[in-house]
Simulated scan of single mutants.
Amino acid sequence: MTYSLNGSAPLTALGVIRAEGADAAKFLHGQLTQDFALLGQDQARLAAFCNAKGRMQASFIGFKRSPTEILLICHRDLLAPTLKRLSMFVMRAQAKLSDATADFALYGQVGEAAGTPQPAWSIATAGDATTISLYPADGQARALRVAPVALPAPAGPALSEELWLWSEVRSGIATVSQPIFEALVPQMLNYESVGGVNFKKGCYPGQEIVARSQFRGTLKRRAAIVHADAALMAGQEVFHSGDAEQPCGVVVQAAAAPEGGWDAIVSLQIAAMQDGTLTVGSAAGHALTLLPLPYELLADI
């Protein structure tokens, strides 16, 4: 099959939470794994919302539209419960949270459609439209465009959402969805290596666990990219040939590969990446092939 990783795709699986008010940045700073207190309007943030045990309940790409308005882009299947949980902590803060999905059109852009490659999480604005540079996939620039629904769709070629979702997997940056709710700490998705965790900021739910995983050598899982000949889906367990009974990992995000089979981001025990064979679903399931990770893991923070 022929395909082109160039164009813009409407993103139906993502939603938007709006935080507005004088304390919006301060409030989010105290809840998420990244620094929102010092966030300017030229940068976005990758961030996680964790429970008290450091397990991820949601992940976001967040940015400021104005000094008092922040948008959080997250998986739509977790938006409503996440909005409810975050709202419980607002208390006396001058911040209002709402579901703003209906107000904005989200597009994933790849290749020439993404514009001139920029460092990940940098922002370009054109009127009311915001374009956030993302990590590339297979050498192709990628971006997330967020604009009011009244604005025209991006000019240029259309890209299927399926190809966009595949580029998401190939970028190695996972978005937390319902099947992996509260299953992983951020480092199990390599978030500390791709700008998703700030270890110098103040407290947030689960901060002690996240910091302990980083600095006490207790982290035993990492994110990897795999390929299979059969369909994959988030939440499937992964097994290693050395132990047919206990899973060694979980599929986090998967997409059909345009040249056949499926690719996926999986969170695996580090030991399971060294040797032996990997299968999905059971020890007798379809084989998984480890693919190169497209970015370097940080050796030190």
Rank of each mutant, 00 (worst) to 15 (best):
V266A: 04
G111E: 11
V238R: 01
A234R: 07
P294C: 08
I180L: 10
M188D: 13
Q118T: 14
A183K: 09
E296T: 12
A234T: 11
S241E: 10
E296K: 08
E245N: 08
K26G: 13
L144E: 05
S98N: 13
Q187G: 11
P148Y: 07
R222W: 15
V251E: 12
V226I: 05
H75Y: 09
S171I: 14
P258M: 05
S282K: 05
Q94T: 08
V197Q: 02
Q140V: 03
A47I: 06
R212F: 05
S59N: 09
Q236H: 07
F89Y: 12
A256L: 06
E259V: 11
V210G: 07
V185C: 13
L28C: 03
G195A: 08
R145C: 15
G7H: 01
T101V: 14
T125A: 06
H75G: 13
D103Y: 05
L278D: 01
E20F: 08
E208L: 02
Q57K: 10
A231Q: 15
E168A: 12
I73V: 09
I173A: 07
L134V: 10
R145S: 14
G108D: 14
L28Y: 05
V176P: 12
T2I: 13
R145I: 11
F60A: 01
I123S: 01
A22Q: 15
G281N: 05
Q236G: 08
R170F: 13
Q207T: 05
T175L: 15
D243N: 15
S171M: 13
L38Y: 12
V146P: 07
P154L: 14
T68Y: 02
S66W: 08
V238T: 01
C50L: 04
L97G: 01
F49A: 05
I173G: 00
D243T: 02
D128K: 06
L72A: 04
T125W: 00
I301F: 15
I61V: 15
A283C: 10
P179A: 07
V210I: 10
T279H: 01
R145H: 12
K201V: 12
A52M: 14
V197E: 01
P152H: 00
G15C: 12
V210E: 04
Q140S: 08
Q214N: 08
